[in-house]
Design a protein around this nucleic acid. Structure first.
Length: 508
RNA sequence: GGGGUCGUAGCUCAGUGGUCAGAGCAGGGGACUCAUAAUCCCUCGGUCGUGGGUUCGAUCCCCACCGGCCCUACCA
């Protein structure tokens, strides 16, 4: 038992919550729940990123203040996570006072340490965009958005001396080979560092929607520069050193592959510059992709247009399939670290085979036979059941898999146990036997069901609770301590087993 | 242009320098009937992107090429 601090990126409020956000958040949630089950003191953080030009513009175009706008848009994320049964302990918004305080303290320390300097930023500026462009991003020498000429401009900005950390970052990468996973992503970030680092401008004078620079109130920090610091805000950096000392060594950032540079290069350097350790662990996940015309028409909008992942709302899926089915699919289908293909057909197929046919049907058939052969009272398991080995393998497999951020493997291991239980029922056919001769096999089947409930609780909390109650247990599998509770023999017997409606009715 | 990554059975994906390259789903056959027409057993199915090279031997190592995707510094 220890501590476990897991974070998602804070999502930019100008997006609507989509399936890509849900993928990351549900994975973080399941991992957090698993660690709570292990007895770890767990802190699970998510939130919204609310500064920057785009937010200020959106607010203006809707005729509201940025504060009103972000209140509205941030709420959509909080609702989305509630509806997916996400158990975050905290929800941080970068517009909160606590975040302003931490950002100013943290960056002031970097400034005092000499790693933030004032310099002139020169670049090609589009007056309409109020933004700079690199030569490469221009189209025919014109601003790609407004198709107008850009002008040479210069602005006094504060720069973070990222270049000063090249060697220290490489040293850190070499001394902490597991800090960034998977290895391929670590390699990518390391190559970037080895390619040479330039200083980065971290302040703006062209807008006011940001955190004011404490030593020069004319400037606000560039949005990424305040966003990353949220991970420290949430544990009280600047106001509660003891809390930071407790949690920071146990942080695990779960991020998407498109923001590697900020998290794996800038962020560790910022930490070093402020005099704290870089984050202990960063896990980079891939993307969910949608390959063309695979989604059902009702979701596609236009009849023949390809659907983007960002157009799929988690709410539409949970209404259709149920919360736990969507959670299961997100966790089971695409391993963290690689890209995966998402489709309604895939979700439906997995729902039917894994949830309806295997898990749901197992629970149903066991309950029925206990009803007919044991008067509805579940017997205790046999100590020498052939299912003991399968059960131990599943528990060991799940433990190892969650530990390495591989929810899909944990669920695979669990489903092998479900398969073994179904096969054992075929082999012993207790429905044909005389009452009184089948207590061992049915008790063992119930024990498998109990252990499965424990193992899926992090992924499908509501389903796990329901199964738990159907086999007569009280409380919740989430309150049991793993892995001890999943040891063979925990089902006491003598409990009322109820059948109930199908957990996952088959779909067409 | 540079960096990274992926390209393996119909589909989604594992995998290893060396016996016949694996899983789940889908397909085919059989068994069973407790169960959500579920389950269980058996089975069909692959020139491991293309072309070279290293090696006694490569799907796995190296090079080139083709195709997909991410990043390329101030964009969330």
């Amino acid at each position: 038992m220890g501590r476990f601090y897991v974070t998602t990126p804070i999502y930019y409020v100008n997006d609507v919550p989509h399936l890509g956000h849900a993928y990351c958040t549900v994975n973080a949630d399941a991992i957090a729940r698993w660690h709570r089950g292990l007895g770890d003191e767990t802190l699970f953080l998510t939130g919204t990123d609310e500064h920057g030009t785009k937010v200020a513009e959106s607010a203006e175009s809707h005729g509201v203040t940025p504060a009103e706008w972000t209140d509205r848009t941030s709420a959509r994320f909080q609702e989305a996570w509630r509806s997916l049964n996400v158990s975050n302990d905290d929800f941080i918004r970068t517009t909160e006072d606590r975040h302003y305080a931490t950002v100013r303290t943290f960056l002031k320390r970097i400034y005092d340490n000499g790693y933030i300097v004032k310099d002139t930023y020169k670049g090609l500026y589009c007056v309409s965009c109020e933004d700079y462009y690199t030569t490469e991003s221009l189209e025919a020498g014109l601003c790609p958005v407004h198709r107008r000429a850009v002008v040479e401009m210069e602005e006094d900005n504060y720069f973070f001396r990222l270049s000063a950390f090249e060697d220290r970052l490489i040293e850190w990468y070499e001394s902490q080979p597991d800090a960034i996973r998977p290895a391929a992503k670590r390699k990518e970030a390391l190559s970037f560092i080895r390619g040479g680092l330039k200083d980065v401008s971290i302040t703006r004078t062209s807008l006011s929607w940001g955190v004011p620079v404490p030593w020069d109130e004319e400037h606000v920090f560039y949005v990424w520069y305040d966003a990353l610091i949220n991970y420290l805000t949430a544990i009280g950096y600047g106001s509660d050193d003891e809390r930071v000392a407790e949690w920071w060594p146990h942080v695990h950032h779960l991020i998407g592959k498109e923001i590697i540079r900020f998290h794996c290069v800038w962020w560790p350097a910022m930490c070093m510059a402020a005099g704290i350790d870089p984050p202990a662990s960063i896990f980079v996940h891939g993307w969910l992709l949608v390959g063309g015309h695979k989604l059902s028409k009702s979701m596609a909008g236009e009849e023949d247009s390809p659907v983007k992942l960002t157009e799929i709302s988690p709410a539409s899926l949970t209404e259709d399939f149920g919360v736990d089915a969507v959670r299961y699919h997100l966790l089971r289908d695409t391993p963290l670290g690689t890209d995966g293909e998402f489709s309604i057909e895939g979700l439906t197929s997995r729902y039917n085979s894994d949830l309806a046919n295997n898990l749901g049907n197992l629970v149903a058939r066991v309950a029925t036979v206990v009803g007919s052969k044991c008067g509805g009272i579940g017997p205790a398991p046999a100590a020498d059941s052939p299912l003991v080995a399968a059960s131990e393998e599943a528990v060991a497999g799940a433990l190892a898999a969650w530990e390495k951020f591989a929810p899909h493997e944990a669920l695979e291991a669990t489903w092998r146990l479900i398969g073994a239980a179904n096969a054992e029922l075929e082999a012993t056919a207790p429905w044909k036997a005389e009452p009184g001769t089948v207590d061992d096999v049915l008790g063992s089947a119930l024990e498998v069901v109990r252990i499965v409930a424990l193992l899926i609780s992090a992924a499908m909390p509501a389903t796990a609770d329901e199964i738990w109650h159907r086999i007569g247990l009280s409380g919740s599998p989430a309150d049991e301590l793993l892995p001890d509770a999943a040891q063979w023999g925990g089902y006491p017997g003598g409990l009322v087993v109820t059948k109930g409606d199908p957990l996952f009715p088959r779909r067409k």
